[in-house]
Design a protein around this nucleic acid. Structure first.
Length: 825
DNA sequence: GGGGTACTCGTTTTT
DNA sequence: CGAGTACCCC
């Protein structure tokens, strides 16, 4: 796809007044407010010692990444190499050397958790809380901040509402119905995802590809998208995508505003750069690029090997093309790992080397201990036995004084969790599930929030529709539809329509009375908004509306929990100054907190494990079809497989000391039992760092595998296993990436899985960077060496290109192979 | 408006 | 198989 960035206005027209970006004197444009305290403290910290404290303990690469503050920098930080430390120290360094005020640093993360952590750690380094860093946050929260200031430039008012996915789906459903379409044939949820995808790519209705537009509702895709945007505008609302797109539009259309921010942001930092999508990339480029001659003090930190969000729009290309976007960029690799044993790193490194499109890093550690466990692969008969055996392993560790908090089970898909939960409940083993529905996604929280939204923003129709009949007030579908039509016909919000309609004879007396009560309630609450403490008002709203009573009268099992959640909602409100600021916080930031005091095993998906670490990690479900997931293969082709492999890499690298991988022979899928084959990823682990566990239970896999032997059935593991069914089936489905470890462009034609129109991404760029990043490192092989390859057998090295060897194999002929796959014979 | 039944669908998830 | 939804009938 031609990247739609070329229309981003650049700075050619600007005279490039060389602002002293790195000047020691802070620019006078720094806004007042809190920042000075930190700067002052930072300076004090600096003055205390010549070589500042915060720099000691960094390794040379980390230190370089911290101290290279002028000009663009890309830090390729492998798992466990101290990425966050570099980012936070870099900020501290900028502050301590007086290069900028805290308010002149733009620091972007993906999650609120990461932002929070970063604030905390910078605060710790500089001494004290970081109140003066107003521009540290997620893409979305910074987007909101920008939009609230300049809402009118994109046709909103600064009081706009932020809709969550649920609101969006309901809204789209209304639009689909309004178009006279069958909302069952064309599910709103699906269209919401399509819109999300377009917005991730930075496309508005006019820009979406014709094919996409046709793909939905008999070619009405574009029309519906436009209608949706129009509706958002009348509602004065944004979806999550708009929080990025509106600022982009605004900056493009108002270069003077953009310039203002260029002057403000002297330093730009981005975390997890490999996860940025196209819209975020455009946003960043607008803010970070400077006219020629002006230093672009942008620092992106990321790891292409941990890019696991391609399916939701992340573009690894962004990290791969950094040097093109920011000419003269310095690229710093962090490869010294402080987290894991050499076996864990060896296993992970060997696995990930099977990927083609990477910048090429190899993690290493000095911490070598002969007592370290190898990565252990276990077989089980079925998922029940898998859960039982993992449970036993955990209890064993527990008996040896290992806290449960140091253990995690990382699954590919959340349905796998259930089996473990069931087992742990019977064992009485504490566990916590990470992920799941967030606090603010819960029904009762969303209902309560809808009430609050209505009070703060009477025009919020979605909120109105949500709670107008909750609790039940006898306002059924007919009444609502009536009201809806009335409002639409006059182009007024529904609450206003309700106010009008109760003066007419349009409704039946019963409905009229009920609606009258609702309108009166809201009027009263609105009048209290300014002068009543917001927590008090919130409680009052929930009580007087009958919402609390509704749950008190509910005798279902969840009702008490819901009431508890409502209390929690009110409690958490205390930290905010107004109902309004609280609303914003909840829509963007609020998440359920975990009970840190409980010692428990964590259960989560591999995706949510990114960024975490545990002494012991269990990785169940390594079977073809589940991991790599069949759908990733079907829809993503080779790049889909590579993303799955990165996910496996993320999983293994979460482990500090012990990593146990499991696969089963039988798993229930869609209700019926299916025989499964070991994941191809198992075959991609290096024998030197992996051992295969003996059967530890009566149901153990040995001799029971209906597929005959695989290398995992044998006492002597890792013999050549390429005749196993797993391999054969993998062959049948395979892309060239795993086929011979290096794309084998000269080799046979290979059946491709669902390549589709998307095809492999940016091959040239990837290829170029791979070559570049490895060309200056001397190979450990020389031409003429006799080598052995797991699949091709013995051969002689005929030429070397970086880490890629051309080898004449005795039997298999000439192949190109990554040097990680051969050893000296 | 509630309750019961029929039907669909089945990776990963942040904001 | 089983959760979630949609729809229908009382």
């Amino acid at each position: 796809m031609s990247n739609g960035f070329d229309d981003i206005p650049f700075f050619d027209e600007e005279p490039a007044p060389r602002k002293p970006a790195a000047s020691p004197a802070p620019a006078p444009s720094a806004p007042a407010g809190g920042g000075l305290g930190i700067a002052a403290r930072a300076m004090a910290a600096r003055d205390q010692a010549r070589a500042p404290d915060y720099l000691s303990g960094l390794n040379p690469e980390q230190r370089e990444a911290v101290e290279t503050v002028d000009g663009p920098v890309l830090v390729l930080a492998g798992a466990g190499t101290g990425k966050t430390r570099v980012l936070t120290t870099r900020i501290a360094h900028i502050l301590a050397t007086n290069r900028a005020y805290p308010s002149q640093i733009l620091a972007v993360t993906f999650t609120n958790k990461a932002a929070r952590e970063m604030k905390e750690r910078v605060g710790h380094l500089v001494g004290g809380a970081v109140e003066g860093m107003p521009w540290m946050g997620t893409f979305h929260s910074i987007g909101v901040k920008l939009l609230r200031r300049h809402a009118e430039l994109v046709g909103l008012t600064s009081a706009f509402t932020i809709l969550d996915t649920d609101d969006v789906v309901r809204l789209i459903k209304q639009i689909i119905q309004a178009e006279g379409l069958d909302d069952k044939r064309w599910p709103a949820k699906q269209f919401a995802q399509m819109i999300d995808g377009w917005k991730n790519k930075g496309l508005d209705a006019a820009q979406i590809p014709e094919g996409d537009a046709r793909a939905f509702a008999n070619g009405k895709g574009r029309e519906l998208y436009a209608a949706y945007q129009a509706r958002l505008k009348t509602l004065n609302a944004c979806d999550f995508g708009d929080l990025l797109l509106h600022p982009i539009r605004m900056f493009k259309a108002n270069p003077d505003v953009l310039k203002e921010y260029h002057q403000r942001f002297k330093y730009v930092l981005v975390d997890e750069y490999q996860d940025t999508n196209t819209a975020q990339y455009m946003w960043l480029r607008l803010l970070a690029q400077r006219p020629p001659g002006v230093p672009q003090n942008v620092c992106c930190v990321g790891d292409d090997d941990q890019s696991i969000y391609g399916w939701r729009g992340a573009e690894v290309d962004n990290i791969l093309r950094f040097e093109k976007d920011f000419p003269g960029a310095k690229v710093i690799k962090l490869e010294r790992n402080y987290r894991s044993t050499e076996h864990i790193l060896g296993a992970a490194g060997f696995l990930i080397a099977h990927n083609e499109g990477r910048l090429g890093k190899t993690l290493f550690t000095d911490r070598v201990d002969p007592n370290d466990d190898k990565v252990v692969v276990h077989a089980a008969w079925d998922s029940e036995e898998e859960a039982r055996a993992v449970g036993e392993e955990i209890e064993q560790l527990q008996r040896n004084q290992h806290p449960l908090n140091n253990m995690a089970i990382l699954v590919r898909a959340s349905f796998q969790m259930r089996e473990f939960e069931d087992r742990f409940v019977t064992l009485g083993l504490n566990y916590r599930v990470i992920g799941g529905p967030r606090f603010y996604e819960r029904l009762e929280i969303r209902d309560a929030m809808a009430y609050f939204r209505m009070v703060c923003q009477p025009a919020d129709d979605l909120a109105f529709e949500r709670i107008v009949n909750t609790p039940k007030r006898g306002l059924g579908d007919t009444t609502i539809r009536n009201l809806h039509d009335y409002a639409r016909a006059r182009d007024i919000p529904m609450l206003a329509a309700a106010t009008d309609i109760i003066e007419t004879d349009e409704l039946k007396p019963k409905a009229r009375k009920a609606l009258f009560d609702v309108v009166t309630d809201f009027r009263r609450w609105q009048s209290l908004l300014e002068n009543t403490p917001h927590t008090e008002l919130a409680e009052q709203i929930l009580d007087e509306s009958g919402y609390t009573a509704m749950w008190q009268n509910d005798k279902s099992a969840e009702a008490p929990g819901r009431l508890e959640n409502l209390k929690e909602l009110i409690r958490s409100m205390e930290a905010f100054e107004s109902l309004r600021s609280f609303l914003e916080h909840v829509s963007l930031v609020m998440d359920a907190e975990t009970n840190e005091n409980l010692d428990a095993v964590s259960i989560m998906t591999l995706h949510s494990a990114k960024g975490l670490e545990f002494e012991t990690v269990f990785l169940p479900g390594w079977e073809e079809g589940l991991f790599p997931h069949q759908r990733a293969l079907d829809e993503g082709g080779r790049s889909g497989l590579e993303e799955e492999r990165r996910l496996a890499y993320v999983g293994i690298t979460r482990a500090k000391r012990r990593c146990h991988i499991w696969f089963v022979s039988n798993r229930r899928i869609h209700g019926l039992w299916q025989s499964t084959l070991p994941s191809r990823f198992l075959e991609e682990l290096p024998p030197a760092h992996v051992e295969v566990a003996e059967s530890e239970t009566s149901y153990g896999g040995y001799g029971r595998n209906p597929y005959g032997q695989s290398r995992f059935d044998k006492q002597e593991p890792f013999q050549n296993s390429y005749s196993t069914p797993g391999w054969k089936r993998a062959q049948a489905n395979k892309t060239d990436a795993t086929r011979d470890n290096w794309g084998n462009r000269s080799g046979h034609s290979v059946e491709r899985i669902g390549y589709g129109e998307s095809g492999p991404r940016a091959k040239t760029i990837e290829g170029e960077l791979v070559a570049k990043s490895t060309s200056n490192e001397p190979s450990r092989f020389s031409v003429g060496d006799r080598v052995f390859h797991m699949k091709f057998g013995n051969g002689n090295v005929s030429s070397i290109e970086g880490n890629k060897l051309t080898i004449d194999f005795d039997r298999a002929g000439q192949k190109r192979v990554l040097d990680g796959f051969v050893e000296k014979a």
